[in-house]
């Protein structure tokens, strides 16, 4: 099967809604304690795309966030830094400058984020601008309206065109699963994105509720697994939005391990799109180290 033709939906597996939810709730019962918990917390920390996507974002806030990305918690400098910073295109150069000399990537949302309601040319220009500014990763949104109308070819071509515009930058495709209504649609959209050339598939923009949920993530992980088995190509996964607690993060890691295996348990193949999750992970790590329950007062908000 060629990787740049649209997938044949006749061969797509149908999704058993009850089965998916059942499996998620079963995997959520895994108990991770002590050393393995500590390791998982640190791993989750290193997988974070520290995100600020607000209309009121300023250079100052982005610089501050970049400092947090380098050293999440100053009293424990041995902790890993996060995987990337995720900002709007006009903040990319600021972030890039602030992260000079580190391994931390700069991800930029593009293509008329979060709605995606703009002509293709505008989306391409948006993407090119972000790449020229120095973005290492591009988070694009698909046109959900067109997808729900059934214009799958249009979605496919659009993703392929954006991928082209990205050049060397990694492309993450945001499906905005909260607007796709069914798991079947999530699976379809995942397949389209992967076959069109996505490097990562991502659940949500974080602007729509529900954002990332575990059943949706499982459906997407299974799509990645099937794609890997069919083509041998690894695709990354990024749940984003609504993941605030360390406990949830560990549950996501279990889903990844059980669906895709340990190979995917690295920041290269799995990311969390989150901002408040960072502090909860830090609080749990400090709790594990000291045995004292922590207060958010002692952790920086940006």
């Amino acid at each position: 099967m060629s990787t740049n033709t649209i997938p044949d939906f006749n061969t797509t597996v149908s999704i058993d809604k009850v089965g998916v939810e059942e499996r998620v709730s079963r995997l959520n019962k895994r108990s991770i304690k002590k050393e393995s918990k500590m390791q998982a917390l640190k791993l989750a920390l290193s997988m974070i795309d520290l995100t600020t996507l607000e209309g009121k974002d300023s250079e100052g806030k982005v610089v501050q966030l970049c400092r947090k990305a380098r050293v999440p918690y100053a009293p424990m400098p041995e902790l890993p830094s996060v995987a990337a910073i995720c900002v709007y295109p006009n903040m990319v150069s600021t972030a890039k400058k602030a992260l000079q000399g580190t391994e931390i990537n700069v991800a930029s949302v593009a293509t008329a984020f979060p709605s995606g309601m703009a002509p293709l040319q505008v989306k391409l220009d948006d993407t090119k601008y972000a790449v020229e500014e120095g973005a290492d990763e591009i988070d694009m949104v698909i046109s959900r309206g067109e997808f729900l109308k059934g214009n799958y070819n249009l979605i496919f071509d659009e993703i392929a065109a954006i991928k082209d515009a990205c050049g060397d930058a990694h492309l993450k495709v945001i499906l905005e699963t909260g607007e796709l209504e069914t798991y079947e649609n999530v699976r379809k959209a995942s397949d389209i994105a992967m076959y069109a050339g996505a490097d990562f598939i991502k659940t949500s923009t974080g602007k729509i509720s529900p954002a990332a949920t575990q059943p949706v993530t499982l459906v997407m992980l299974e799509a990645i697994r099937d794609y890997y088995q069919a083509t041998g190509k690894m695709i990354g996964m990024k749940p984003a939005g609504g993941i605030r607690k360390a406990k949830q993060a560990l549950q996501y890691l279990v889903l990844v391990k059980e669906t895709l295996g340990a190979k995917w348990l690295t920041p290269e193949w799995f990311r969390f799109g989150a901002s408040s999750l960072t502090n909860d992970l830090l609080m749990q790590i400090v709790k594990q180290e000291t045995g004292v329950y922590q207060s958010s007062y002692y952790f920086s908000t940006d």
Partner: peptide, 8 residues
């Protein structure tokens, strides 16, 4: 112990 240690 845990209540009186709690940072919050």
């Amino acid at each position: 112990d845990h209540l009186t240690k709690h940072m919050d």
